[in-house]
């Protein structure tokens, strides 16, 4: 393999992404290995802790059932802040437009960004706009950065999962990835599947009421639930055991996954969070989630079953046990 080439898989959020970060980007720019990284950096200034994050959005197509690139760009960055227990406050927006893009479509996308920001309670306070020649970008790319405050006493971190903790998710998995795939490929069998794109900071505020019992929060975006839990397992040095039967899954998503040979555990979400909670507070956290509009299908999907070098295993719906690894390369459909 030619090591000099950047491949699409380097942007999958899975193993190749981790390798690129660990081998090149992080050693050059900062030095903290990716296994120690969270969704946002938490920095301290004059006794005040701030969460700071950035994300670029290149989704294709830019409009999909349940959202568009604009709502995604705001909600995604809000969620990265919320996953550190931060209250999102301010956001920047960088737009890279392709020559020839429709101004009317841009207006729709900007309106969606404003609406998403208002709903999440963040202010878009600065930004930048560039236009590149036709063919040098794909209609529209967006970068957003966000800043939030982390209140005293809030200590959420991917390294804090402990043996006995329960793993909770706030609803069905794989909706976003399948909705976008269906929109891109024109899969007519998936007409009723919408992206779950949503800001999760309101739900996180509810969960923070469980105080120190809330150990880890992370949103399973690219790479899906499997990759995200594997990251947490490595970061915390634990084994996480999932129960396949407990995974909330829309029948349409399951159907498309079955037909295309995709594993929903690896399909992206944009309005889901995984909460790792001390066992004695798990039921209370689950109840809180279910009372929230973004958590009505919440479920306990597994638990931290032991100390290890970072293993995830799945008790299958039929009673077998298998390992769960990070997404490798791009997730591709089967061919026969």
């Amino acid at each position: 393999m030619d090591k000099d080439l950047i491949l699409l898989g380097h942007g999958s959020g899975g193993k190749l992404s981790h390798q690129l970060l660990d081998e090149l980007i992080i050693p050059t720019l900062s030095g903290v290995p990716v296994a120690g990284q969270n969704d946002a950096a938490v920095v301290e200034h004059n006794g005040q802790r701030l969460a700071f994050t950035t994300d670029s959005y290149v989704v294709d197509p830019i409009f999909f059932p349940g959202g568009n690139i604009g709502s995604l760009a705001v909600n995604g960055t809000v969620n990265d802040l919320a996953m550190m227990g931060a209250r999102p406050l301010f956001m920047s927006v960088g737009l890279i437009l392709e020559e020839g893009m429709s101004r009317r479509e841009l207006a729709i996308i900007l309106a969606a960004m404003r609406e998403a920001a208002d709903r999440a309670g963040v202010a878009i306070v600065t930004g930048d706009t560039k236009v590149v020649p036709r063919g040098k970008a794909d209609r529209l790319f967006i970068n957003t950065s966000g800043v939030g405050v982390v209140e005293n006493g809030v200590e959420i971190n991917g390294c804090k999962a402990q043996v006995g903790d329960r793993v909770i998710i706030n609803g069905t998995i794989g909706d976003h990835g399948i909705a976008v795939l269906a929109a891109r490929e024109g899969l007519e069998l998936a007409t009723d599947i919408e992206s779950d794109c949503a800001a999760l900071n309101g739900l996180v505020t509810e969960l923070l009421q469980d105080g120190e019992a809330l150990h880890v929060l992370r949103d399973p975006t690219r790479g899906g639930v499997a990759t995200t839990l594997k990251e947490i397992a490595i970061q915390s040095g634990v084994t996480i055991t999932l129960r396949e039967e407990a995974l909330p899954l829309k029948s349409g998503v399951r159907g498309v996954c079955s037909i295309l040979g995709l594993d929903p555990l690896y399909v992206a979400n944009e309005g889901k969070l995984l909460a790792i909670v001390a066992p004695d507070r798990a039921d209370a956290a689950l109840a809180r989630m279910r009372r929230h509009p973004l958590g009505s299908d919440a479920a306990i999907i597994g638990e931290v079953t032991g100390a290890s070098d970072g293993r995830v295993q799945l008790e299958t719906s039929v009673g077998g046990v298998r390992g769960v690894e990070m997404l490798a390369g791009e997730q591709l459909p089967r061919i026969c």
Binding site: G261, D263, V318, G319, G320, R322, C336
Partner: peptide
């Protein structure tokens, strides 16, 4: 068939 191979691994059939 490869689809069988995948299903057997995916559902942990050997462990049963």
């Amino acid at each position: 068939c490869g689809t069988h191979t995948m299903a057997i691994y995916q559902y942990g059939i050997r462990s049963l």
